[in-house]
Computed example of a mutant assay.
Amino acid sequence: MTESASTKQRLSDTVAEALQRDILGMAVGEKLPTEAELTERFDVSRTVIREATRLLVQRGLVTVKPGRGMTVAEVDGRVIADQYGLLLRLSEGSFEQLMELRLVLEVEMAALAAARRTDTQLEELDALNERLRAADPSSAEFLDADLDFHEKIAEASGNPFFLLVMRPVNDFLSDSYTAGTGYPSEAGHTVDEHFEIAQAIRSGDPARARFAAENHLRRVVRNRVLLTRE
Rank of each mutant, 00 (worst) to 15 (best):
G77L: 03
R131S: 05
E106F: 09
A110T: 10
V48I: 08
V48Y: 02
L143V: 13
P137F: 12
V28C: 05
S12K: 07
T181G: 15
E141Y: 07
P66G: 09
E96T: 07
V62W: 08
R54P: 08
S91D: 13
I197G: 07
A81W: 13
R210C: 01
F161C: 00
V28F: 13
R222K: 12
Y84F: 15
V28R: 14
S174K: 11
K65T: 10
G60L: 01
S157K: 06
L112S: 05
T7F: 13
V15G: 05
S94D: 12
L103H: 12
R117A: 15
E17P: 04
Q58C: 06
L98A: 08
A16C: 00
A111C: 12
L226K: 14
R116G: 07
V44R: 14
E40G: 08
R10V: 10
E30N: 11
D205G: 04
L122H: 03
V28S: 14
R167G: 00
L112R: 12
E106C: 09
L122F: 02
I201Y: 09
P66C: 07
V44F: 09
D175I: 12
A200C: 06
A145Q: 09
I23T: 09
R218T: 14
V165P: 01
R210P: 02
Q121T: 00
Y177H: 14
E3Q: 04
G29L: 06
E123V: 11
F142Y: 06
G182H: 12
A187P: 12
A127P: 04
S6T: 15
L132E: 03
A187W: 06
L122R: 06
G182N: 01
V44W: 07
R46L: 09
P184I: 09
L143H: 06
E123S: 15
A18M: 13
A16W: 01
G93T: 05
G204A: 10
H194E: 03
R229I: 03
R116V: 07
E193T: 02
S6H: 03
I197Y: 04
A81C: 13
L19D: 08
K8V: 01
T178M: 05
D171F: 13
V220N: 01
D192P: 04
F142K: 04
T39I: 14
A213W: 04
V225R: 15
P66N: 15
V75I: 12
V44K: 05
L24G: 10
L19T: 00
E96Q: 11
A27Y: 02
R59I: 02
N215W: 06
A179K: 11
Y177F: 15
R102M: 02
G25W: 14
T71M: 09
L98V: 12
G67L: 09
D126N: 01
A18Y: 11
F142D: 08
A114V: 05
A200D: 03
G69S: 02
L103K: 14
